[in-house]
Amino acid sequence: MAEEVLSKATDSQDSPEVPPAKSQALWSRILGIFLKQREATIFIIAVALVIYFQASNSTFLSKQNIGLISQYTAATAIIAFGEVMLLICGEIDLSVGFVYALAPFVMYFAVQDGFPLPLAVIIGLVVSLLVGLFNGFVVVYLHVPSLIATLGTGLLLNGITLTISNAFQVLTPGTGTRFAGIMGNDTFSEILWAIGIGVVMQIILSRTRWGLHTFAVGGNPLGASEVGVNIRLIKIRNFMITSLFGGFAGILEAFRITSTQPDAGGTVIMFNAVAGAVIGGTALQGGSGTIIGAFLGVVVLGLLNDGFTFLGVNALTFDIVIGAAILIAMVLNVRLQRLREAGKQ
């Protein structure tokens, strides 16, 4: 009996593996190459835009304008890095733009209360982290979908910012100091922060347990939990980092423009950050995405924004163009994801 079983086993071991249908393999290979090169694609688009705008107006690549683009890009990119983490694990934070407005006010009032400026910055960041913890708690433990939960938090935060500021702008403390320069007031300091944070986040995403589990939670939540991945911890952590980045970006911007505005950020910067992430290849359905892609996506949005201004596109029609571009990118993102899934079958 046992011998019979064994001989059967060797028989079937000899049989070669079934190769997948040829046309399907080719199709999925082409698709795979294209999908893998998503960052390359978006990079080429960015370069093409630079060439086009430079050809249209030779001052596009002046140091001054590059500085402008980098400033437009930096804060949005930092927020996008957080949103990438959240989107990959299957969540989103709509409130981050309001943390962006709140954090520099918290910093301002901490200075008013006699705290030294660096400590005031830290207090602003801690409050941002607590907002993220709150968002994570509501989503993970109270089971409110993040789309609704963070919409609520955002409105709440906006109200708090307007209340504590009396809806008046204030001067950012420390203006003119070296500290303020490092924290965003120097022309290129903000983009350097963004690049530095981006590098660290890309390493976290692709080289640590935190990153791996973020992919697992977004890709197969049930499977991840069966294996023992702590889904709640991962999600809460990603909400906290997103909120932290929102607050930090807001503080950098407050130092850059030397005043702190109660209506800064909001849904616009959040939407640009999410759009940048999605343009850069982060799947809206979770499970895949990269930090570098998000950075490039935000850069493309920044180039468009600045370039259209350079070309003299009417500011009123501008939003139509950008809005349409973002929508098209999102539709493509979802279509590609569907194709990707179809290619897997």
Partner: peptide
Amino acid sequence: DLALVNELSVYHNMFLKRERLFGYVPLL
């Protein structure tokens, strides 16, 4: 349902939650 994550490689799936690190350096 196999509890596999489609988006991850075979080896990342096999080591999910039992990842190998560089000693005390928390890198995969």
